[in-house]
Each structure stands twice: as structure tokens, then as C-alpha cells.
Design a protein around this nucleic acid. Sequence first.
DNA 1: CGCCTGTTAATTGTTAACATGGTAATGTGA
DNA 2: TCACATTACCATGTTAACAATTAACAGGCG
Lengths: 200, 200
Amino acid sequence: MSIAPKTVREQVTNQIRDELVAGRFEAGTMLRETELANRFGVSRGPVRDAFIQLSYEGYLAYHANRGVTVRHPPNPENRKFITSLRQQIETHAVERGLAKATDDEIDNIEAALDRLKAACDSGDTTAIALQDIEFHETIMIGCGAEDLVSAWRQLCSRMLLTYSRLGDYHQAYREHVKIFDSVKARSIEATIEALKANIK
Amino acid sequence: MSIAPKTVREQVTNQIRDELVAGRFEAGTMLRETELANRFGVSRGPVRDAFIQLSYEGYLAYHANRGVTVRHPPNPENRKFITSLRQQIETHAVERGLAKATDDEIDNIEAALDRLKAACDSGDTTAIALQDIEFHETIMIGCGAEDLVSAWRQLCSRMLLTYSRLGDYHQAYREHVKIFDSVKARSIEATIEALKANIK
DNA sequence: CGCCTGTTAATTGTTAACATGGTAATGTGA
DNA sequence: TCACATTACCATGTTAACAATTAACAGGCG
């Protein structure tokens, strides 16, 4: 269920997010509604909506009457702390909800894993970063933790601004396979173990 | 620095947020752009912007082409977990940044405390809830943790949907005085202690 | 009788024009 | 030459009209 973006706003939002994660804009850069609207061939409305949304996803900073700027990635110390919070949230979700996950939801997670594999095979680091996070999100939703997803996403998003596990992303993929296998086996302990090995 | 809402969007956003925290809308209720736009005497644009923003603050859930609904407050088990995360974030902010807080920032925190006092004196529980959270936010910003504020806010927001420390809000106020005194004395340990006593 | 399909009313999605505000360049005075 | 006020430009803020989508309902078919 790779959400097919239907509305113009979603397409614009996704496109800008992709470019942000790809590092196309330097941190601190001011983004202009008109410029992006022209580039995408749409009006300023959806671009505006996208700016508000991406601000609250953590990628952009909003300044009234002055537009948005690209946020700086978190500093190393905060990164460590954020990673710890992320582990706690995903662990909590698995502990509380893995047992209740339906087969349908397991299928969704497997589909997310497939998309991650495709991204890894293509070598497109931006796609890998986004699919990586989406895989984890699918697990959380499968565990019935939609409640925590938005806060969790806030924490992860900006980490992506310097996503660079590029070293060996096939290793990263293998870690995710391991996570999925544990999920499929409905083993809470093994899943948490695998998650901890992956989130770092 | 009680942010004076300048744009229509900010006013609309604040107004809707107030009503949400006040419990004016039942959880699951669908909010209509036109209705609110008429009530506030503005066009649908700013209301739309407010919906997107409040969705990402955690109060509303967005459904493409079908508008927004009021989110349900977190269940008791998640509440406990969220409270723990909140404590960790505020503690982390204080540990890393209290020493570097400038006198100006201490003044801002004191101003926030004054506004909380005014709210308590008035007995307006909605205002108390919002000033409570704003006081904590001001501390985090004072400690240079803007980086973590948006995720932190996501966690707190929905808790407000059932803010009910109403029992004795003068006790709550005293707790905040204690926090401020520790902050002013730049005592990291005492501040963390006071925060832990307050966040529960 | 139940299900499917076409229509309709209502709501959100999008657009382009207009209003407002901020920034930076320009010119004036000391 | 520098400080400061003025002004012009450009970007965002807001609006209202128009387009697209949805869900509900009515009619017809199996």
C-alpha cells in the first residue's frame, strides 16, 4: 500500500520532502511559495499547505510573513537522545500491540519491506531513507500505535536530513528482514532485539 | 512574550485549539471548514491552514477529501508512557541547556509564570491548561532545546484533551513556582526534581 | 428482496486576483 | 561618510469563485 498520492497537495508535499531528504536545499535556505509553485506547475495554495505540513513534520521552520526555512539537522548529542526516545516508542508499541496485529497488517509490513528492498536495489539513498522510516511506521500502525506515530515521526524526520547509513545499505536491509521475521513470528522479545540492533 | 496572534490564521488556530482543549467538541466529531469560517467571519483559507496545523499538533485527524475529526485522548496506558517521555525530554533539555540560559530567557520564563498565575486566579481551566504547557515550553526554549519542542508538543497536546488537574490548581501553581525558583537559581538537580514532581 | 448503478447535494480541493506586510535600496540630511 | 527616513518592490496573507471528489439516495435490474 504505497500510498498513491492523489491530491496535488500530497504530491507537492512528497516531492519537497524528497528533495529535503536528498539534501537538495542547504540548511537555513528560505523556500519561496511562488518559485516552487511555478516549478511544479500548480498554484501557491497547495505549496502553502505543504509548507505548513512539513513544518509540523519537523523539516521546515515557519516564520510569519517571511516564509519557511530549511531546518538544521539535530546536533550529535541530541541525535543520541532522539535515538533513545525512538527506541523506547517502537519498543512500547511492539510490547503493547504485536500480539493483536492481524494477518492483514503483517502483509502490509511485508509490502513495506518489499519496497525497501526495491529502494536498496536501486541504490537511491533518498528512497532508502524514506522507505526505511515507512517500514518502521507500518509496524507501529500494525501494533495499533497510531496514537504515537505523529510524535515519533517528528523525532525521526529531521534525523533524515543527514541520513547516511550509506556505508552498507544491504546490511541495513538485512536488519530489516530480521525485524520482519520476528514480527511475523509474533515474537515480542526477538522483535525488540532486532529493532534495537537497527535503530542507532 | 505571550505571542500576540497577528495573522488571521494564528487567531483561528488558537481559537479552535482553545475550544478543543475546553472540550467543546466531542471526540470523533467532524469539523467543517465552512461552518467555522462563517462563525469566525473569515474565509475558508485560514481555517484550512488551521486544520492542517492542528492535525500536526496532534489534536485533529486529517482525512483526505473528507475533512478533519477530533482525535480521542490517549488511553490510560499510553498516558503513562507519554508522561515518561515528556519527563525525559524536559529533563534532557534542562541538563544540557540550563547553564547556558541567558537572563533574558529567565525573564521570559517568569513572564510565562505570571500568565499562569493570572489564569489560575481567573479559574479558567482551559487557560490554565494552555499556560501550563506554555510555561514548560518557555523553559525548553530557554534551555536552547527548540530542536525538541515540536515533538514534545505532539506528546503533550492530546493529553490536554482531558486536562483535569482541576482538583487543586493552586497546588499546581505552587509546583510551577518551585520549578521557576530552581531555574532562576540555575540549579539543574533542583529543577529536574521539581519537574518530576509536576509532570505526572 | 437485495444489490448495483446513476444522479445529486454537499464538502473539500484548487486557483487566481487582490490586500497586506516586510525588506532592502534609495535619497536626504547632518 | 554615516545615520535615518522614505519608498518601491516582492513575498506572503486572504479572499471568493470554480473544479473535483465524496457519500447518500433513488431507481432499476437480477
